[in-house]
Simulated assay, not measured.
Amino acid sequence: KKLPTLKYFWLHSDTITSAYDELVVPLLHRMPNLEKLDLYLNVIERKTFFDGNDLKMNIINYMPQLNKFTFNICSLSSFYNEINLPSNEDIQKTFRDFNNKEIIYWADYFPERRKGHCRIYSYPYKWKYYDDITNHFPGKIFIYVRSISLYDERPFEHEFFLRIAESFPLMEELFVRNQKQQINKPIEKSKKLSIIKYPSLKQRFLNNTCIDYHEQFLFDTKTSLPFNVRVNMQYGLVKQVTHNFTSNTTRSNCAKINFANLRKQMKFPEYSDDFSTGKELFRKHIKDYFPHTQID
């Protein structure tokens, strides 16, 4: 059944769908008089990535009254590999007729997962979240984004984090997933790095990372954390990075943390149970190293 009186439609879904062509497209075809359309979708296992031709053929041509179309579509597919990933130049050509000021497209291939990854969105970017940023992230400024996640099967170097901090000046949450060791660390030791600042950061999650990213965020020669930040880190890696909670290089950033989720990875003798109070008592040198931190 058609929806001829509908003028504005907003569809945001964080849930991954494999039924875009079967469910979403037919739904949009029921809205011939739509004037504004806002889409935020995560699509998997589609045989083709999204481009301007696809959006025109499946959406825009069915909505002659459409005058504002904002979208953010991420797709992950095993039908693509490093050889047949469409280039940024080819994709950009398909958006020549769009009214949007700018369309951003970038693609990646994850060899371990054997999947191609593509993200395409209208700019300026209006959403509060930006997930699964890789090394191919093209940059620009995102003033509305408050939460981001980083993921790649290639290492994130210091310059990448600098670019992230510049692109997301009001970022409050940062999730990092990367088990690949940084390649440029030996080179970085011989030169003075730009210290990265995250002035609005409130929470940082490093649970699924290797030791290099604990160093990246705790070394004061690389990062200056804001005060009262909450962190999720792996206790064993924190212990190594801080040289058993004695290093001066990490002391200043650790002193700025007001909550650290470490306890579930801690084992005797680093803490002990006080059965009379029901509280776990951390050794004094750990508490001294995190003077303002609630450790959980």
Rank of each mutant, 00 (worst) to 15 (best):
L6I: 14
L6Y: 11
D14W: 03
T17P: 02
S18H: 14
D21N: 11
V25I: 15
P26M: 07
L27V: 09
L28A: 09
H29F: 08
H29Y: 10
M31K: 08
M31S: 08
P32D: 04
L34P: 01
K36D: 09
K36M: 07
D38C: 09
N42M: 09
V43I: 13
E45D: 13
R46L: 10
T48P: 03
F50D: 00
I60A: 05
F69Q: 02
F71M: 05
N72P: 04
N72A: 08
C74T: 08
F79C: 11
N84Y: 06
P86C: 06
S87L: 13
N88L: 09
E89C: 15
D97I: 08
N99S: 15
N99F: 15
N100V: 04
N100E: 05
K101W: 08
K101Q: 15
I103C: 02
I103R: 01
W106P: 02
Y109D: 00
E112V: 10
H117F: 15
H117Y: 15
C118D: 14
C118K: 02
S122V: 12
K126A: 10
W127F: 13
Y130I: 04
D132E: 14
I133G: 01
N135F: 06
F142T: 00
S147F: 06
L150G: 00
L150I: 10
E153Y: 05
R154C: 13
R154N: 14
R154Y: 15
E159T: 11
F161T: 02
L162S: 06
I164Y: 02
A165Q: 03
P169H: 00
P169S: 01
E172I: 12
N178I: 01
N184H: 11
N184G: 08
K185V: 14
K191E: 09
K191P: 03
K191N: 07
L193K: 13
I195C: 15
I195A: 15
I196W: 01
Y198E: 02
R204K: 15
L206H: 00
N208H: 05
I211G: 01
Y213D: 00
Y213Q: 00
L218S: 03
F219K: 05
T223Y: 00
N228V: 07
R230G: 05
Q234S: 09
Y235M: 10
Y235G: 08
T242Y: 03
T246Y: 03
S247F: 10
T250E: 02
T250M: 00
R251P: 03
R251L: 07
S252P: 05
A255K: 04
K256T: 10
K256D: 07
L262H: 05
L262C: 08
L262A: 07
K264W: 12
K264Q: 15
Q265A: 11
K267L: 06
S272N: 10
K284W: 07
I286W: 01
D288F: 06
Y289W: 04
I295W: 02
